[in-house]
Amino acid sequence: MQLALFLIFGVLAVAGAINLLLQRHPINSALSLVVVMMSLAVLYWSLGAEFLAAAQVIVYSGAIMVLFVFVIMLLNAGEEEHTTGSRIAYVAGFPGAAAIFCLLSFVFLSERKAMGGTDLGGYLSHSANNIAEISRLLFRDLLLPFEVTSILILVAILGAVVLARKEQ
């Protein structure tokens, strides 16, 4: 059952990601991104990280993707045109992506034994539950990065004001 879920949603995630790249209309790309996010949520859940799965659905598929779609609708973005620049991207991009894929699969396959496996549907930690683990990390060990992220968001807001405001 778990294996079947993993296979189905793994394939769905990869297919969604490829579709995202191939689609010419931004709305179609955004909707394939929703598919990717949802499949990832199922994969997290099947690994026993149920809190992460719920957060993924609520934050990414819910909040962020809705924003994406809104922005695309507001901008009224039409179909992309393929220029010479993006053909260069095909020539350089696909071999590069293939090379990284091969390198990663080589490393993961050659270290397969050492890394061991995990039971699908197992628990992240056998002693504590998911939420306790994550909150200990987020509000104790990694408290500072968590707090400093607010400066990051502040900088992004400032940037939006600077770059998007109409000049008088």
Partner: peptide
């Protein structure tokens, strides 16, 4: 801590992009 480095890197990068 690499995650802290990452957040710092993003703050400095995004402000220079702008």
């Amino acid at each position: 801590e690499l995650l802290m480095v990452f957040v710092g890197l993003e703050i400095s990068s995004i402000s220079t992009y702008i």
